[in-house]
Computed example of a mutant assay.
Amino acid sequence: MILKAKERGNAPQLGRYLLAMRDNEHVELHEVRGFISDDLVGAFGEADAIAKGTRCEKYLFSMSFNPPEDVNASIEDFEDAIRKVEEKMGLENQPRAIVFHEKDGRRHAHAVWSRIDSERMRALNARGSREALGG
């Protein structure tokens, strides 16, 4: 998988982007975990609201998963790659959303985690990000 990641804020804008059809033939909200809301806009609104209780501006960790051009990855392949990254980064218990995009017959995935530990109201460091990205 080709991985691209960054820490970011502005969850409402990211939610709108991930659900937009303008650049994609198909968009699928695959999973929303750890949020009260079960839709992406509501879940990301929660992440935004919780982050306001901290000084963290880049309260999301967003990663795209793109298989090489000659590989047709299954849903399970994406889920496995996301799980491995999540474990390396220490984000296993954090709220997460997964969205699939399809463009020109090729599927890729976006996984987004909240970095805010809502019990301690502190941002988690995305540990191991270089290793998770293969760098």
Rank of each mutant, 00 (worst) to 15 (best):
M1G: 13
Q94P: 08
R130W: 06
V71C: 04
F61T: 07
R55L: 13
M121K: 11
A51C: 10
S64I: 02
M89G: 10
I50S: 13
L40E: 01
S64P: 01
E25R: 00
A97H: 08
H26T: 01
S129D: 11
I50Y: 15
P67A: 02
H110A: 14
D23F: 00
N24R: 03
A49Q: 14
M89S: 11
K103L: 01
G9C: 11
L91M: 09
E25W: 00
A73C: 04
P12A: 09
P95G: 08
V71K: 06
A49L: 14
V32S: 07
H30P: 03
L40V: 01
D23K: 00
N125T: 13
V85G: 10
G15K: 00
F100N: 01
W113Y: 15
E86D: 05
A109Y: 02
G15A: 07
E46D: 12
E7H: 11
L124G: 14
S114C: 08
V99L: 09
I50E: 15
E69H: 06
E31G: 12
H30S: 13
S64G: 00
V85S: 10
E76A: 05
A132C: 12
R16Q: 11
S62C: 07
G53I: 12
G105R: 00
Q94D: 10
L14S: 11
L91K: 08
D23I: 00
R127C: 02
A20S: 15
M121G: 05
E86C: 07
D70G: 04
S74Y: 06
A97E: 10
H101K: 01
E76V: 02
H110T: 13
G135L: 07
G134V: 04
F78G: 06
A73I: 03
A49F: 13
P12E: 09
R130V: 05
N66S: 02
E79P: 05
S129R: 12
I75A: 07
L29N: 05
D117I: 15
A132E: 13
A49D: 15
F35N: 12
E28N: 04
H110G: 10
I116Y: 15
A109N: 04
E131G: 04
A97I: 12
N10M: 15
N24M: 03
F65R: 01
Q94L: 09
S114W: 03
A111N: 14
N10V: 14
G9M: 12
N66D: 01
R115G: 05
L60N: 01
I36P: 12
S37A: 15
G15F: 01
G135S: 04
R16M: 07
W113P: 07
F100L: 02
G135W: 04
